[in-house]
Amino acid sequence: MERRYRTFFLYVEETPLLHLHPAVKLLALFTINLIAWLLEAPIPLLILLAALISSYVLLRVPLSRIRRFLLYALLVSQAVVVSYALGSRIPGRVVYAALPWGAYISDMTLLYMATMIMRFASMLVGSTLLLSAMRDVDVIYGLLSFKVPYTAAFAFNLAFRFSSLFLEDFKMIRDAMILRGAKLDEGGILQRARNYSRMGIPLTVIALRRMNELSYVLEIKGLGFKGRRTHLHEFEWSARDICAAILLLASLAVVALLRLTTSLLSFPGWPLA
């Protein structure tokens, strides 16, 4: 049974990924996405996608995590299909349909569509896998590990904290306006959006007051104080973290090198070229 803890991110406690150093988690997130972006060949992308899906089982992350994004994946796939079917000219051995404005659908068009869908799916599956082991504290300490200034990482953390406060303010202002006779849910979608946007002024006043108060509080607490800081959590680099980081960087370097110097990873790539 998947146990969930409500921070901004919902993470799975059972996965060994959770114990990785925050910097490795962020590095993995970027590396997997970059590798998927660099790959343009269908078979290597298929291998990457299969490896990522298998990792869910190996790393004890429920595959149901991806279910939430299935509709989105389907809609992006539809966008890819429509866009390439109506607007591309990719030469192939067989042309299935030629359109009056010069675009045509060949066997290679279909293969390229599938490749682009697999590229997108690899990014989505890889990112969701890593997000299953990401807590907001990992994002903050991960950013610090990459030498992002503490105040900048702290600002990111404030976004998580303040979003729930503003959600409460939003509900409070909405209820107050409804009690005074405002009809926020009347009209079409755009009219409703305009009605809701009238809540902007009270919400912004609250935000501006909060901004002033927060800056004074942070000054008093010595956030801007120069010098070495201590932190609530200490994340040590283990041998496993170092190996994982080296492996990730080496994989990215190899893929980038192969993509730039050979045609193995360019469309149609190995073994179809």
């Binding site: 900048a152 404030l158 303040f162 979003s163 809701y196 935000a207 000054e219």
Partner: peptide, 25 residues
Amino acid sequence: VRQAAITGVTAGLCLPLALFAIILV
């Protein structure tokens, strides 16, 4: 510190509104 407060509060304000915009329109 002031700049961090501007960034953090603006992000905190815009985040629920962005979620709301995606759901509403």
